[in-house]
């Protein structure tokens, strides 16, 4: 079989692009996508993205500049992916005992869109190298790109920008406190006892001004509660608003008091889980980067 260099470029480009999507498709505690159908959707879209990226190079070299307009079509398509993800995750969120919250969902949807562009880029670079250089150089570039995309996809987690430590839960009359931070008013004695027995109090302390604002974001706080409840289980049911994991902020110094109600009451593990909560892109603020700051 005699294949032209362009065909080789497309084949290798599509392959590396597809593998980079495969590498970015991980099923972890976020449990999405888990089943084959969900995975097939994203792998197919990844394959299409890889094809677009790989074909762009021969098209350009052959001076087929109109072919580039197809890339804008692709961008449109992948924005649609983001809408689709947002919509379905928001619908499913209504059935969760502890909600993800719109900020977390937006972050996930954005990641799905972004990954497709990374696939296009990987395929494009690989294909370009094959055409300009040789096939093994192309495979090498593709491998490097796959490794880099793996690094690019991971953001910060809460442990890097905050100090997470245990706090003591206590009741003062009907008021529930974690250390000195007021959480909520609990009316029934039975619920007070259940919260004290089953709950874990956690204090999250911001390390600087930037993280203080990030931690104040309601979406970020909901993400903490959701992640902790997903991993540790949650001691509650529908129609039981008294048993709700909750977080309140100390207005003086920006610390966050958190009440968790895990099935598995293991304080150390709970702290590790909270440290691993991703910092949401929509919650990041950088007031320290302001140039004319005093």
């Amino acid at each position: 079989m005699n294949l032209t260099p362009y065909t080789w470029a497309v084949i290798i480009g599509v392959m590396t692009g597809f593998f980079s999507r495969l590498r970015m498709l991980r099923t972890d505690y976020r449990q999405y996508p888990t089943y084959l159908h969900g995975q097939v959707i994203h792998l197919s879209l990844g394959f299409i993205a890889a094809g677009l990226g790989a074909v762009a190079v021969p098209a350009l070299l052959e001076k087929e500049y109109t072919a580039i307009t197809f890339l804008s079509l692709a961008a449109q398509q992948f924005r649609e992916v983001r809408n689709m993800e947002r919509e379905s995750l928001s619908k499913l969120d209504q059935m969760e005992l502890v909600k993800r919250g719109p900020s977390y969902i937006e972050g996930i949807a954005m990641a799905f869109e972004g990954r497709n562009y990374l696939v296009i880029l990987t395929a494009f670079l690989t294909s370009l190298t094959v055409v300009v250089g040789t096939w093994y150089l192309g495979i090498l570039v593709g491998l490097v790109a796959i490794v880099i995309t793996g690094v690019l996809q991971s953001g910060k987690n809460l442990g890097q920008i905050t100090e997470v430590r245990p706090g003591e839960l206590r009741m003062e009359e009907a008021g529930l406190y974690v250390d000195d931070i007021y959480l909520m008013n609990v009316g029934l004695k039975e619920n007070r006892q259940r919260i004290l027995d089953r709950g874990i109090g956690i204090i999250i302390e911001p390390k600087n001004v930037d993280s203080r604002i990030t931690l104040a974001n309601a979406g970020q706080r909901q993400a903490i509660l959701h992640d902790a409840s997903t991993i540790l289980g949650v001691y509650r049911d529908t129609g039981e608003p008294s048993l709700t994991p909750i977080s309140k902020r100390d207005l003086e110094d920006g610390r966050l008091g958190v009440l968790l109600l895990p099935e598995d009451r293991n304080e150390e593990r709970a702290i590790r889980v909270v440290q691993k909560v991703p910092v949401l892109e929509s919650a990041v603020r950088l007031p320290e980067e302001q140039p004319d700051r005093a």
Binding site: E173, A174, N185, V186, G187, L188, K189, E190, N191, T238, G239, E240, P241, S242, T244
Partner: peptide
């Protein structure tokens, strides 16, 4: 007071809050 608030909390899927020793309110959040 405790028993009645407990029942109403379950029935209304709300949360009982204590205002003082003599009064509780049921609120859904």
């Amino acid at each position: 007071l405790e028993e009645r608030a407990f029942l109403l909390e379950k029935i209304l899927s709300g949360m009982a809050h204590q205002l003082d020793d003599h009064t509780m309110i049921i609120v859904r959040h």
